[in-house]
Amino acid sequence: MNNTGFGPPNLDDSSQQASGHYYNNASWHARKPSDGVYVPFVLGPAGRVNADLNSLAKYLMAHLEGSRGENNILEASSFQILHQAVDDGYAMGWGAFNVDWAKEKILTHGGSNTFWLAEWMIIPEENIAVMMIIINASGDNANQASGEILGLLINRYGTTQ
Protein backbone atom coordinates (compact mmCIF):
# COMPACT_ATOMS: atom_id res chain seq x y z
CA MET A 1 0.00 0.00 0.00
CA ASN A 2 2.03 2.92 -1.30
CA ASN A 3 -0.32 5.88 -1.64
CA THR A 4 -1.94 5.97 1.81
CA GLY A 5 -2.01 8.34 4.73
CA PHE A 6 -3.88 9.77 7.68
CA GLY A 7 -6.18 12.73 7.31
CA PRO A 8 -7.94 13.81 4.14
CA PRO A 9 -6.48 12.78 0.79
CA ASN A 10 -4.89 15.21 -1.63
CA LEU A 11 -3.42 17.44 1.08
CA ASP A 12 -0.74 18.67 -1.30
CA ASP A 13 -3.17 19.21 -4.22
CA SER A 14 -1.39 16.50 -6.22
CA SER A 15 -3.26 14.54 -8.84
CA GLN A 16 -2.60 11.23 -7.05
CA GLN A 17 -5.86 11.22 -5.10
CA ALA A 18 -9.24 12.75 -5.72
CA SER A 19 -10.40 15.83 -3.91
CA GLY A 20 -13.69 15.68 -2.07
CA HIS A 21 -16.70 17.43 -3.58
CA TYR A 22 -19.96 18.89 -2.36
CA TYR A 23 -23.16 19.91 -4.12
CA ASN A 24 -24.35 23.50 -3.73
CA ASN A 25 -26.45 25.85 -5.89
CA ALA A 26 -27.11 23.13 -8.49
CA SER A 27 -23.43 22.33 -9.12
CA TRP A 28 -20.53 20.32 -7.72
CA HIS A 29 -17.58 22.05 -6.06
CA ALA A 30 -14.17 20.66 -5.07
CA ARG A 31 -13.25 20.73 -1.40
CA LYS A 32 -9.82 21.90 -0.36
CA PRO A 33 -7.97 20.59 2.70
CA SER A 34 -8.42 24.08 4.15
CA ASP A 35 -12.24 23.62 4.03
CA GLY A 36 -12.20 21.85 7.39
CA VAL A 37 -12.37 18.27 6.17
CA TYR A 38 -10.35 16.90 9.07
CA VAL A 39 -11.81 14.34 11.44
CA PRO A 40 -10.58 14.92 15.02
CA PHE A 41 -7.52 12.86 15.88
CA VAL A 42 -9.31 11.21 18.81
CA LEU A 43 -11.68 9.45 16.37
CA GLY A 44 -8.86 7.81 14.40
CA PRO A 45 -8.54 5.65 12.54
CA ALA A 46 -12.27 6.04 11.76
CA GLY A 47 -12.56 8.53 8.91
CA ARG A 48 -8.87 9.45 9.11
CA VAL A 49 -7.28 6.88 6.77
CA ASN A 50 -6.95 7.60 3.07
CA ALA A 51 -5.70 5.34 0.30
CA ASP A 52 -5.74 5.14 -3.47
CA LEU A 53 -7.74 2.39 -5.21
CA ASN A 54 -4.73 0.09 -5.72
CA SER A 55 -3.92 0.24 -2.02
CA LEU A 56 -7.56 -0.34 -1.06
CA ALA A 57 -7.63 -3.37 -3.36
CA LYS A 58 -4.52 -4.82 -1.67
CA TYR A 59 -6.10 -4.28 1.75
CA LEU A 60 -9.32 -5.93 0.62
CA MET A 61 -7.50 -8.90 -0.94
CA ALA A 62 -5.53 -9.48 2.28
CA HIS A 63 -8.83 -9.68 4.18
CA LEU A 64 -10.37 -11.98 1.56
CA GLU A 65 -7.41 -14.36 1.84
CA GLY A 66 -7.53 -14.16 5.63
CA SER A 67 -11.27 -14.85 5.67
CA ARG A 68 -10.55 -18.04 3.71
CA GLY A 69 -8.00 -19.21 6.28
CA GLU A 70 -4.86 -18.09 4.45
CA ASN A 71 -1.88 -16.38 6.06
CA ASN A 72 -0.56 -13.17 4.50
CA ILE A 73 0.24 -9.90 6.32
CA LEU A 74 -1.40 -11.47 9.41
CA GLU A 75 -1.81 -15.05 10.53
CA ALA A 76 -5.12 -16.63 9.51
CA SER A 77 -5.99 -16.92 13.20
CA SER A 78 -5.72 -13.12 13.55
CA PHE A 79 -8.10 -12.60 10.63
CA GLN A 80 -10.49 -15.06 12.25
CA ILE A 81 -10.52 -12.89 15.39
CA LEU A 82 -10.97 -9.69 13.33
CA HIS A 83 -13.86 -11.18 11.35
CA GLN A 84 -15.68 -12.92 14.22
CA ALA A 85 -18.90 -11.12 15.16
CA VAL A 86 -18.88 -10.10 18.80
CA ASP A 87 -22.20 -8.27 18.95
CA ASP A 88 -25.14 -8.31 16.54
CA GLY A 89 -23.05 -8.79 13.39
CA TYR A 90 -20.28 -6.38 14.40
CA ALA A 91 -16.72 -7.72 14.24
CA MET A 92 -13.98 -5.22 15.12
CA GLY A 93 -14.95 -2.75 12.41
CA TRP A 94 -16.39 -5.34 10.03
CA GLY A 95 -19.96 -6.36 9.47
CA ALA A 96 -20.09 -10.18 9.71
CA PHE A 97 -23.51 -11.63 9.08
CA ASN A 98 -25.63 -14.01 7.06
CA VAL A 99 -27.78 -12.91 4.14
CA ASP A 100 -30.38 -14.97 2.31
CA TRP A 101 -28.38 -15.09 -0.94
CA ALA A 102 -25.13 -16.52 0.50
CA LYS A 103 -24.56 -19.90 2.14
CA GLU A 104 -22.04 -18.59 4.67
CA LYS A 105 -21.49 -15.25 6.38
CA ILE A 106 -20.38 -12.26 4.36
CA LEU A 107 -18.11 -9.47 5.54
CA THR A 108 -18.68 -5.79 4.91
CA HIS A 109 -16.59 -2.78 5.77
CA GLY A 110 -16.60 0.85 4.95
CA GLY A 111 -15.35 4.17 6.00
CA SER A 112 -16.24 7.81 5.73
CA ASN A 113 -15.34 11.18 7.13
CA THR A 114 -18.63 12.56 5.70
CA PHE A 115 -16.74 13.96 2.69
CA TRP A 116 -15.46 10.69 1.15
CA LEU A 117 -17.08 7.27 1.41
CA ALA A 118 -15.92 3.70 0.73
CA GLU A 119 -17.97 0.50 1.10
CA TRP A 120 -16.84 -3.03 0.28
CA MET A 121 -17.97 -6.62 0.66
CA ILE A 122 -16.25 -9.99 0.94
CA ILE A 123 -18.00 -13.26 0.13
CA PRO A 124 -15.43 -15.80 1.36
CA GLU A 125 -17.20 -18.94 0.10
CA GLU A 126 -17.17 -17.55 -3.45
CA ASN A 127 -13.65 -16.06 -3.18
CA ILE A 128 -15.11 -12.66 -4.07
CA ALA A 129 -14.14 -9.24 -2.80
CA VAL A 130 -15.85 -6.17 -4.22
CA MET A 131 -15.20 -2.47 -3.75
CA MET A 132 -18.84 -1.51 -4.13
CA ILE A 133 -18.86 2.22 -3.61
CA ILE A 134 -15.98 4.66 -3.65
CA ILE A 135 -17.23 8.24 -3.74
CA ASN A 136 -15.60 11.60 -3.15
CA ALA A 137 -18.70 13.57 -2.31
CA SER A 138 -21.11 14.09 0.52
CA GLY A 139 -24.65 15.23 1.06
CA ASP A 140 -28.09 14.00 0.15
CA ASN A 141 -27.43 13.67 -3.61
CA ALA A 142 -24.27 11.61 -3.06
CA ASN A 143 -25.92 9.44 -0.39
CA GLN A 144 -28.93 8.77 -2.60
CA ALA A 145 -26.73 7.93 -5.60
CA SER A 146 -24.51 5.57 -3.59
CA GLY A 147 -27.57 3.81 -2.14
CA GLU A 148 -29.04 3.33 -5.61
CA ILE A 149 -25.73 1.99 -6.95
CA LEU A 150 -25.42 -0.43 -4.05
CA GLY A 151 -28.98 -1.63 -4.62
CA LEU A 152 -28.29 -2.21 -8.32
CA LEU A 153 -25.11 -4.15 -7.56
CA ILE A 154 -26.81 -6.38 -5.00
CA ASN A 155 -29.78 -7.00 -7.31
CA ARG A 156 -27.52 -7.81 -10.22
CA TYR A 157 -24.65 -9.71 -8.60
CA GLY A 158 -25.81 -10.43 -5.06
CA THR A 159 -26.65 -14.06 -5.48
CA THR A 160 -24.49 -17.14 -5.44
CA GLN A 161 -27.32 -19.54 -6.29
Rank of each mutant, 00 (worst) to 15 (best):
N3P: 01
T4Q: 07
G5P: 07
F6W: 13
P8I: 12
P9A: 14
N10P: 00
L11S: 11
D13W: 15
S15I: 13
Q16M: 12
Q16G: 10
Q16N: 13
A18M: 12
S19H: 13
G20V: 01
H21P: 03
H21S: 08
Y23T: 05
N25V: 09
A26I: 02
W28C: 01
W28A: 01
H29R: 04
A30L: 09
P33T: 02
S34H: 03
D35M: 04
V37S: 02
V39Y: 01
P45I: 11
R48L: 13
R48T: 11
L53S: 08
N54W: 06
L56A: 03
A57G: 02
L60E: 12
L60M: 14
M61I: 05
M61K: 13
A62E: 04
E65T: 00
G66V: 07
G66M: 03
S67I: 08
S67D: 06
E70N: 14
N72W: 00
L74V: 07
E75L: 10
A76H: 06
Q80A: 11
Q80D: 10
I81V: 08
Q84P: 02
A85K: 08
V86L: 10
D87V: 09
Y90H: 08
M92Q: 12
M92W: 04
M92H: 10
M92T: 09
G93Q: 00
W94M: 02
W94V: 00
W94K: 00
A96C: 11
V99W: 12
D100I: 01
W101C: 09
A102P: 02
K103D: 13
L107K: 00
T108G: 07
G111C: 10
T114I: 07
T114N: 11
T114C: 05
W116T: 06
I122K: 06
N127R: 12
M131Y: 09
M131K: 07
S138R: 14
A142K: 00
A142T: 03
Q144S: 14
Q144F: 15
A145Q: 14
S146D: 03
S146G: 03
G147T: 11
G151M: 04
L153H: 00
L153Q: 05
N155S: 14
R156W: 03
G158D: 08
T159M: 05
Q161A: 15
